[in-house]
Every structure is written in structure tokens, then in C-alpha cells.
Design a protein around this nucleic acid. Structure first.
Lengths: 187, 187
DNA sequence: ACGCGAACTTGTCAATGACAAGATAGGATC
DNA sequence: GATCCTATCTTGTCATTGACAAGTTCGCGT
């Protein structure tokens, strides 16, 4: 509100945004709470009030990440081909969230808000992955796991810069034929 | 050698082993150089002599990891089905190495020793992955990337504990049908 | 015997995460 | 309008850490 405000106005959101920026720039371990506080123009202990400690901040990031992730997957349609592309698009567009989400040692994975959003995302994956191999029995998790693995692996490898050059700069386009390989009709 | 030895004897190896243990226990960020020094019974600055700084130690871990990784893949036979299972077996058995290797922001990825071992592993992957879709032209990277993605994704998800229960406790056995799904003959 | 370099120690500094205790604002209640 | 009250933020402090500098010890070659 005011420049010299004792109350920042929306410190929680400001610190989270700064954290996401910092993580996207250089990973989830190169910044400090104190640096985020400086960026937000508050004292070094102000973030602790909202998040408790560093793990608390990362828990909040993971919770928001899983919520956005579930939204993205739910909005992608029932076919896994599209769910898979949405998975990869999320990983690239919301890289910071994605990197935190799949590093449970960084935050409190048993946080109820995190668990709920994560369950929502998992449901989309299991449901959508049936289309990979519709002939398999319902209890067989082979196809969902194969589908999940291939999109997750592609996303991780892309983010790490491990994939060979020559794929272009659009990860979703590059992933499209890769995912299709798993979907091709079988005899 | 001697208990009160000024020279530890093999500090480099001792610190590396302690680091690998610590990383396997609780990730690549929860320990400190000083703690490793304490475990090895040396002063807080002794590790720096061998590794320079923390990134130097992690670079050494990554280099040794990639070397062992390349050995494991090369010894798995030419068929990608077996290479893929070896990939997953390595990720689980040498979890600490694997987790560092695929986190280039933690170490100096341009280190020549790292780059050489990594190139060796990449070669096995590209060569072996041809068997996934032998009908594709040689320059087409779709099949290698699909194969790499599915095993890497499975390994990551397994390590993170993200996969549903009910798969048993043997990741290699659990991965076997998943990988086969990608290999099934197509019309 | 001697030097010389590698291996390790001691000492120090700024930065950090965590915590405790105090200050302030802005609304609720009377 | 005065008073309280609670969320929000500050100031101050402590142990720990990574990094660096300078000194010490060892063992090997000559």
C-alpha cells in the first residue's frame, strides 16, 4: 500500500513470487530467505511469519504448483496424448513449481493442501492413461505408469538440458512424436 | 594409517564415501562439508584441499557416477530392453550418484572427466535404442528419446516415491512390463 | 641431512536459518 | 472516541556454514 508501510500489504504473495522467480533462475537451493526478504523490501525475519521456515515456503510453492498442475491436466481433455502434452507444457512453463513438486525432501509432502492437489493430478493421470492400452484389465497399472514415465522422463530430461540438440526449442512439439510412439496401435 | 595420523591416508576417498552416504540418506543438500570432515575425523577445512569447494566435491561425485553408469550400461548388452533395466537398476542401487548426476546446477557439468563419462553413457543409449523402432531412419531420434524418457521417468518417479504402491519392492521387476509396452511389435 | 611439496590445521569472516522479544498498525468492541 | 487485540513486521541474537588465508606437519627424493 504505502511505500513506507509497516505492513507490506501482500507479503505472502510477494515472497512466493520472488521465490518462484529465484528457483526458475537457478534452482531451488541458490537463494536465501533473507534475499527474498530484501527483494520484497522487508526485514530478514518477515517471511518467517508467513511460512515458518524455508521448508514452509517450499511447501506453499509445492501446494500452489500441484493445484495449478491439476488444473492444467484436468483442462487437457480425456485423451492421454493431450494430457501428456499438457504435463510437459506445465513442466516447462512452470518450471520452478515443477522442480519443487518432485523434490519431496525439500518440503513437507504430508501437508494436507499438497496431498489434496496431488491426488487430484494423480486421478487425471490414471484415468487418462487408460487410452494408451484399452485392452488391458482395469487393475493393471502398466499402461498408466508407462505413460506417466515417458512424459515425466521427457520433461525432466528437457529441463536438465540433457536431450540432444536439434529438437528445436518447443518441447511440446518435440514430445509429440515421442508420446505417439507409445500410442501406436499394436497387432 | 595411524590413528593420530596427520595424514589421513585416503581422505579424498573417505570424504567422497561419506558424501555419497549422506546424499543417499537425505538428498544432496542436507549435509555440510564440515559434517563430512567431522565424520572422517579431520579438520573442517581438510576437504577443501581435495575438492576446492562444495561444487568440486559434487563434481567428483558426478564424474564417478557417470563412469560407473557408463560401465553398467555398456555391460548390459546391445538390446535396449536390457539397457533400460540396467538404467533403472543403477538409479536405485547408486541412488546418490544418480541424483547428483542429473542435477547439473549442483556441480561443474563442463568438467572434462564428467563430460567424457557422460558421452560414453549417451553413446550406449543412442545405440541401444535403435532396437525400439528399427524401421525408423537412422537420424530419427524419436525412438531413442522415447526409450530414454520412459526409463528415466520411471527411475525418477520410483526414487521420489511417487509411484503407487502395489508394484512390489523390486523396481527392475516392476519396470520390466512397462518397458516392454514400448517394445511391442507394431503393425 | 635437507629441502620441498602435498596434506592437513587453525583462525577468521560474511552470510544464513532459526528463534525470541518487542514494536506497530488497523480493525473490533464498547 | 478510547481501548484492546491480533496479525504483521522489526530488531537482536546465536550456532552453523562455506570460503579463504596463513601456518604446521609429514614423508619422500636427493
Amino acid at each position: 500500500m504505502r511505500d513506507d508501510a509497516y505492513h507490506h500489504g501482500d507479503l505472502r504473495r510477494a515472497v512466493m513470487a520472488a521465490a518462484v522467480d529465484a528457483i526458475a533462475e537457478s534452482g531451488p537451493a541458490t537463494w536465501s530467505l533473507r534475499e527474498l526478504a530484501r527483494r520484497a523490501g522487508v526485514s530478514h525475519a518477515a517471511p518467517a511469519h508467513h511460512f515458518g521456515d524455508k521448508a514452509g515456503l517450499l511447501t506453499a510453492v509445492a501446494a500452489e504448483g500441484y493445484a495449478r498442475f491439476a488444473d492444467a491436466l484436468e483442462g487437457a481433455g480425456g485423451d492421454f496424448h493431450e494430457v501428456g502434452l499438457a504435463y510437459i507444457r506445465f513442466a516447462v512453463d512452470y518450471r520452478a513449481y515443477f522442480e519443487v513438486m518432485f523434490r519431496p525432501e525439500l518440503y513437507r509432502a504430508d501437508d494436507p493442501e499438497v496431498a489434496a492437489a496431488r491426488a487430484r493430478a494423480d486421478a487425471v493421470l490414471v484415468r487418462g492413461a487408460r487410452s494408451v492400452a484399452p485392452d488391458r484389465p482395469a487393475g493393471d497399472l502398466t499402461a498408466p505408469i508407462a505413460a506417466w514415465s515417458i512424459v515425466h522422463g521427457f520433461a525432466e530430461l528437457w529441463l536438465r538440458g540433457a536431450l540432444p540438440a536439434g529438437l528445436g526449442d518447443d518441447p511440446v512439439a518435440a514430445a509429440e512424436p515421442v508420446i505417439r510412439l507409445l500410442f501406436e496401435k499394436r497387432p
